[in-house]
Structure formats: structure tokens, C-alpha cells
């Protein structure tokens, strides 16, 4: 895991000529930042786009997943299991199989190549996974808490806002990190649903490689810049992520 990252960073700090003459994991003979500067100029706009739609879609899909998870876990209604099953089937639906009808739908909606198309598809595609995550977490909240709130006079909305939501920071972190990385890493939607108007970073990164000649130092520097936000997220939230993954039950 370290070696590719190391080789990538080393290559990013080399000149074109240096790259050709040294092994990928050897340190640069002369330290240059040309690769970083070039890729930064190429990527800064798309990176901003990606951060924007990834954040919005992450927040939305977590929020909706939390609501759906609450509904299927705690409000047992006729057919709630079927609803849950149908929801989770979405996880197993490959992107590739729906990409053409999706493209046509998006074009007809008139949001092709915009921020909103990326927010929309990623939010919707995220809901099954986040629902699954939140549901299993909410299942572990004792039923009596829910009953107590009901008897105390709270309606469904109040219970969600005042009991369920405040108990959910951990699943929000887990689902959030999971969603952020998977949306951030998406290439297929970026490729098919956007163009030059709203270019996501994953798509822009592939363009750095160029079609005739590949400046590997630029590509490697770009890759590093591209992975930076995800690394930052992991560093900031890793502690909570581990807690969240291990939390089996809410203990009073």
C-alpha cells in the first residue's frame, strides 16, 4: 500500500527526464514542483466542483438514509420489510446497467452537465447503502426508548429529531466517510453525465494523461492532489470511524 503512494509522490517531484532515467520509487535527483503546479492549474476548478457535489450528496444521502433507516427499523408497518428489501436491492444494481436510461432521463430533465445532476444521482445511489447502515444501528437502540418517548407524548417527528438524531453521530460518521469516498472516487457518472461545463475532478484527472503523450509527473501529482481530500477526511474522522464500526449497541 505504501509503495505505490511513495512511488507516486516521488514521480510527482521529478522532471520528465528524471522520470525516464530512474526507477519509480527512487528519490528525485533534482526536486521540482512542476508536476504539482501544472496539475494544480488543471485540477483546481474540477476539485472544487467535486468537493461541492460530494459534500452535498454525502450530507443528503446520509440524512435521507437516516430517515429511511429509522422508518424501516422502528416504524413497523405492513410491508416495511418489503420496502427495505426493495431499497437495498439498489446496492446490487451495477451503475453500468442503468447508465444509458439514466443518461436519457437526465438529458430530458435538463440538468445534464451541472452540479445538480451529480448531487442527484449520487444522493439517490447512496440511499440504499446509508439506509442499510442506519437501520442496523437503529435496530440496536432499545425499543423501550422509542416506546417511552411515545408515551411521553412525542410524535414520530419529535422522536426522530430529539431522540434518534442526537443518538446518531457515529453512524453519520461511518456512512458519511463511506459515502464521501465512494462518491469522490466515482468515474463513470462523471464521464457520462458531465462535460466541460461542470467537470468533476476524477474526470479531469484522466484528461491530464492526454491522448498522445503522458507527462507522468503531472499525472502523479494530480493523483496525489485528488486523493488529498479523502486522506484528510480519514485522518480527521478515523477515530470516530473505528468507534462507529465497532459500536454494536447504544449503552445508556
Amino acid at each position: 500500500m505504501i509503495l505505490p503512494l511513495w512511488s507516486g509522490i516521488m514521480s510527482a517531484l521529478k522532471t520528465q527526464a528524471d522520470l525516464a532515467q530512474t526507477l519509480p520509487f527512487a528519490p528525485p535527483t533534482t526536486l521540482v514542483f512542476d508536476g504539482f503546479i501544472a496539475s494544480y492549474n488543471e485540477l483546481i476548478g474540477p476539485l472544487f466542483n467535486s468537493i461541492l457535489f460530494t459534500s452535498i450528496a454525502t450530507i443528503l444521502s446520509c440524512l435521507l438514509g437516516s430517515i429511511c433507516g429509522f422508518v424501516v427499523a422502528k416504524l413497523k408497518f405492513r410491508g416495511s420489510n418489503t420496502v427495505f428489501l426493495l431499497l437495498t436491492i439498489g446496492i446490487f444494481l451495477p451503475y453500468q446497467s442503468i447508465i444509458i436510461p439514466l443518461f436519457i432521463t437526465i438529458r430530458n430533465l435538463g440538468i445534464y452537465d451541472s452540479l445538480w445532476v451529480m448531487v442527484l444521482v449520487h444522493t439517490i445511489y447512496g440511499i440504499p447503502m446509508t439506509t442499510l447502515l442506519f437501520r442496523s444501528y437503529y435496530e440496536s437502540i432499545p425499543e423501550s426508548l422509542f416506546k417511552a418517548a411515545k408515551v411521553d407524548g412525542a410524535g414520530i417527528m419529535t422522536i426522530y429529531q430529539r431522540i434518534i438524531l442526537p443518538l446518531s453521530p457515529l453512524p453519520f460518521v461511518v456512512a458519511g466517510v463511506f459515502q464521501f469516498t465512494s462518491i469522490w472516487n466515482d468515474y463513470l457518472f462523471a464521464l457520462t453525465l458531465t462535460n466541460i461545463n461542470f467537470e468533476p475532478a476524477s474526470f479531469a484527472l484522466s484528461n491530464i494523461a492526454g491522448s498522445t503523450e503522458t507527462a507522468w509527473n503531472n499525472v502523479m501529482a494530480g493523483s496525489f492532489l485528488y486523493s488529498l481530500p479523502v486522506i484528510i477526511i480519514f485522518v480527521l474522522l478515523g477515530k470516530y470511524l473505528m468507534q462507529g464500526l465497532m459500536a454494536g449497541a447504544v449503552k445508556g
Binding site: S144, K147, A148, I163, L167, G252
Partner: peptide
């Protein structure tokens, strides 16, 4: 008003 076996106190 109800009192539960596990008390059902809101933990947060």
C-alpha cells in the same frame, strides 16, 4: 406514564 424494565432513559 410508563416506567420500563431497562428504565429507557434517553442516554444523550
Amino acid at each position: 406514564a410508563m416506567v420500563f424494565q431497562d428504565y429507557a432513559i434517553y442516554p444523550h
